[in-house]
Amino acid sequence: MIARDRNWLLIFAVCVALAIVYPLFADGYQLTVIRDALIFGLFAASLDFFWGRTGILCFGHAAFFGIGGYIMALVTLNDAIPFASLLGIMGAVAGAAFVAAIIGYFLFFGGIRGSYFTIVTLAMGVICQQAAVSWSSVTGGDSGLIGIPPIEFDLGGLHVDLSQDLPSYIFVSAIVAVAVLALWSISRGRWGTVLTAIQDNEVRAAALGHNAPLRLLVTFVLSAAIAGLAGALYVCMAGLVAPDLSGLLLSTEVIVWVAVGGRGTLLGPVLGAIFIQRAQQTISSFNPSLWPLLLGCVFVIIVFVLPDGILSIYARLKSLFKGRRRAQ
């Protein structure tokens, strides 16, 4: 195992340990704050899985988060559907994946890459948000849908009811941990190696027998499916879904979370999402108009000072001290 993988697993283990002991020190409200931040962290990890490995930026990733959220809301609000929570989650994941497969097929096999891909996906996000506003008979229009019940299901004799703070925190933490670990395993294996090769030189990868558009498409679909899962979890925890959840602002915020946390690290974006949201809540509580200004400044500073995100601070400090020692 190479040192980079070992460090990643170490940081992952520390994060899991912190997540386990956190309920001992936190009250119900604090638990729900971290729980929601973790869901957005999962959303950020889903974007990073695609952007971090392929180098192609999706600027409308909130569309998949919103699609997942709306499907979950529509399924769970319909009393006629049995096993609504489980079916809702499956529908949210499948719905987001389906939309990504359709859009991704035309983009990847049509040779759309780089900034053109970014612009098209930006438009996709705007269209999704507009559809959520305009199709009010289904989506509830501007005000969205409210009264979405918490997740509740039976699995092999075990009754899972997430209406309370602690069970919902544990459930979300476990899903985020498993999903991030799974995405990391995929990224560091052969799949990730080929994606890096495609990012480096797609023509060459194809000349070595790799169906690059198909591989990019599958990665995009998987990334969208995880974003859909995050959307489904979020609306059940929040109890409502609104057009903002598929909007441009959220698509932009998730890019900032990934950039701040460290693109290509999967764990960094989760931490970035938690860190930025906590900061937002704290700063907005004494001056709401200060936050956008500070966020912009933090983003610019991170891009210049820590282009690999906050997760790279340790490595940078280490190399700094090494350099000093060598100089002495």
Partner: peptide
């Protein structure tokens, strides 16, 4: 057309 970010072994694996 070497993949610069990958190791020699990873290049061969690709």
């Amino acid at each position: 057309g070497i993949f610069n970010q990958l190791t020699v072994r990873q290049n061969l694996e690709v």
